[in-house]
Each structure stands twice: as C-alpha cells, then as structure tokens.
Design a protein around this nucleic acid. Structure first.
Lengths: 241, 241
DNA sequence: CGGGCACTTGAAGTCGATCAAAGTGTGTGG
DNA sequence: CCACACACTTTGATCGACTTCAAGTGCCCG
C-alpha cells in the first residue's frame, strides 16, 4: 500500500496538481488504455490528495468532475434531514466516482484514510469519449456494476439478519478491497460506525456480532481494524448468499 | 389507462410482434425522437404483451434485449437461495429495463398486471447509438436516475422505521406512477406482499401501518388497491424525507 | 353464488436498538 | 518520553418495534 509519505512532489492536501507518472500508469491499467489514449487522459487529469475525513464532494453540491481512486479509501453516504446516515458504499483503489451525479450530488464522498485521487473535468472526459467511443461503453459497464452492487445491497439491507449482514460485509471486503492482500486477512479502514451505517445496524450490534464471530472461531483479531477470516467457508454459510 | 382489451392486433400473450403505431408514438415521446430516428427505432422494435405474473426475464438468464414499458407495471426482484425476496423496484409506463444486465440478469422482471412492452435487441440498439450519439447520453442519464433511486432506497431500507417506509412508498408511488392521475388518488397494482418485500417489512406490518394511517385520517380507502392521499403534507412529515 | 386468495386484526415472542459504562488505543502536549 | 485526553470499541441490561403465529374477514373471479 505504498503511501509515498514525504515524497517531494506531494501537493498540499485537498489541492490539485498535475498527475504523477505513477498515477498515470495506474490510470492506464484501470482503463486499459493505449499509450496515445493515456497521454490525452493525462492532459486533462489532476491529482488530489485528501486527509482522513476530508470530502471529495458533498451532497447537494454541483460537481463537474470524475474521480478515480488511486490510493486509500472513500466513503459514500447520504444524510436525512433529521441526521440519520446511510453509507451507500465504500471505494478503494481502482474504483471511480462522480458517475451518478448529473446535476447536484445525491451523496457525499469523503476520504476514510489518506487518499489519492485523479480528477478529470466531465466535459473533457465527454470529449475524450467522442474520440474513443469504447470509453463510453466502459463507463456504461461501470455503471452497470455500480447498479448491480446497489441492488445487492438492497437485498442485504431489506432481508438479512444482523449476523448475515456482518458476514456478508466481511466477505465483500475480502473480495473487493483486499484482492491482492495475503490470504484471508482484511484491513478495515472504516470505523464500526461506518460499518453500522452501511449495514443499517447500530454500532453496538456490529461490535457484538464481530465478538460473536470471534468467540465462535470464524474470525480472529486483536486490533479492531485488522481481521483474519479463518473458516471463510462457514462465514459464507452464515452470510447465506 | 386504455387497456386495448380485445383489439384485433393484440398478439398471443408473451409473444412478440411488430410494434403498433400507437406504441411507436409512445416511444418517440419517451426518447424525444425525431421522425427519422423513430423510423429506425421502429425497425428494430417488437411488441411484447404479458399477463399478470409472467416474467419479462429471470434472474440468472442471459438477456440480449432492452425493454420499454408502454402500459401496465412491472416488478423487479431478487431471490436469496433460502427463498427470501427483495423487490428492488417497480416500473410503470415510460420506464425502461434491461439496462443493468451486461451478462446474466441479476434480477427477475415480472408483470404485475397485464403489461405491454417494447423490445429491442441490445446489438441493434448499440448500432443506433453509434448513429445518434446523444442516445447514448440519454441512456447514461437513465442509469444515473436508476442508480440514484437505488441509493435512495438503500436509505429507506437501512434507516427508516415502518411508518416512514410506508409513507415514503405512498408518496413515491404518487409521484412516479400516477403523474397524470386525478389528484392524490393512487392505484396500487402490486400486492401487500410486494410492498412488504420492497420495503423490507412483513406483510402484516404493511397492512397494519396502512390501517393506522387510515385511522389517523392521513389516507382513505375502501378497496385495498386504491388509496386516497388526503393530507399529503402530514404524510410527507411522517416520511421524514 | 361459492370458493379461494389477499388482506386485516390480534396476541405473543424475538431481534436488534437504546441506554449506560467500562475498556482500549492513539496522538498530542508537557 | 510519559501522561493525559479523547475517540473508538466493547460489553451489559433493558426496552420496544417489528416479526411470527394464528384467526378472522372480505373481495374477486370463476
């Protein structure tokens, strides 16, 4: 998870600068770009670095940009007038955001831990799509995936018990965020409250359920944010997918 | 809600035929098409008529078509292995489906009441997009809306009480399905169980909550599937949007 | 007109929320 | 470098909303 702490080209947090060569390479891989295409994308890209808690954009704001997560993790959430919160998703390196916001964001995006993003103006990106139409198809595919994920989550929220929700969450995180991590050990950058707001539970229930899983030997952890999924099979059984 | 019962051009249910001039006109309006564009869309369109309960397509099946709802209403749902169901959305005339299914449907789409759909092969539609690029943008916009709706529903499922859920549902239906209906009277083509599975509640809770609303004078109804939203304001207050 | 399915209502039970408090770890300033 | 403060996490006890189980009731369609 190279954090590049103290590198000289690191800009002031929350501000944008030109993308670095490393970021450019990341982008090229995410989008499966040729060299020529990459150069064009680079030309319209800026780099954004956020510290924990800082917002990429907020519910209700206008937003004319697309973002790619290069490093770190991002939390998407909606707030009700009376202050209840629903976390609608977590994003990790390789994920994109800003897609679902034609006019005014319907949700807030915030960095959970220190995060590096790439930013492109939507207009420039649209122009790029006209030049490389398959980019548009890729964008549509990404929205497909996002929509499918949202519908899966609706099932989790509407029809699963607390145990099933937490088990599902752990497995989802294992598949999405820790693709390349050592087997079955997952890092949880988000707080218990974030998890609770994602699963439609109280913090205490999340904590209790994790303790239950540990007592039953399904998982193991000392630090709260680093969990070993021993007996993944049984966890899958609990999740009842 | 002209049902065209007994019209001579009505095909055998569940089978496809050429679109009718009336359907073509509907399409032209939905997509804001010019005459030339409409002719091309007509050329690739087929008409599908479904009786109550019949599936447009099923979870897991391949699906190479897009559909537009011309009349009636459609229920989208997901099933867990152990038989629990989550209804992810309801579609009415003017809505589209088949968008979120790149490879294998992630949900089932079924007619609630008798429904008329227009069907286009995805390939032909893609070709049409190449000719009229703004059609692709329109498609992206529609996915925007779908995604935003899904995220709204996540908030409903995760963070609202039974009363809030039911109130939200009634108002949503009033805005979406009954845009052109006489003020504040809504038709509910779906069963109480469909509503329950949409809101993540038990059937009995939906029924009870509606009875409560009636007792409190927020709504009025004799037949279960036709409800007057008297005191919409108060309903909005209950929904806590 | 009669049967069946959808809806409603009632009573009891349970899961998760809420309230309360103790424990843990992390970062900051002395 | 240590001590303290604060935020996060865990655990316990109680409460309440919604589910589940069990009968009704009534509407719709044959």
């Amino acid at each position: 998870m190279s954090k590049d702490q103290g590198r000289s080209d690191r800009p002031k947090r929350g501000e944008a600068s030109q993308v670095t060569p490393r970021q450019a390479r990341e982008l090229a891989i995410f989008w499966a770009l040729s060299d020529g295409e990459l150069r064009q994308l680079e030309a319209i890209s800026h780099r954004v670095v956020l510290s924990p808690g800082q917002a990429v954009f907020r519910q209700g704001e206008q937003n004319a940009h697309l973002y790619g997560v290069v490093d770190g993790s991002v939390r998407l959430s909606k707030l009700t007038p009376n202050g209840r919160r629903q976390v609608t998703g977590f994003l990790f390196r390789g994920d994109f955001l800003g897609l679902a916001t034609a006019k005014g964001n319907s949700y807030t995006a915030e960095a959970i831990e220190r995060a590096e993003l790439c930013r492109f103006p939507k207009n420039d990106f649209d122009a790029l799509i006209d030049e490389f139409p398959w980019l548009g198809h890729r964008l549509l595919d990404m929205m497909h995936d996002e929509l499918a994920a949202a519908q899966d989550q609706m099932l989790v929220l509407g029809r699963k018990t607390a145990r099933e929700k937490v088990a599902t969450f752990l497995l989802e995180l294992s598949n999405r965020a820790n693709r390349h991590a050592p087997d079955n050990r997952i890092a949880l950058p988000m707080s218990r409250e974030d998890i609770a707001d994602y699963l439609g539970l109280a913090v205490e229930t999340v904590s209790r359920t994790l303790s239950d899983f540990r007592r039953e030997g399904l998982i193991r952890y000392e630090r709260a944010r680093e969990i070993d999924l021993i007996r993944k099979q049984d966890l899958e059984y609990v999740a009842e997918m």
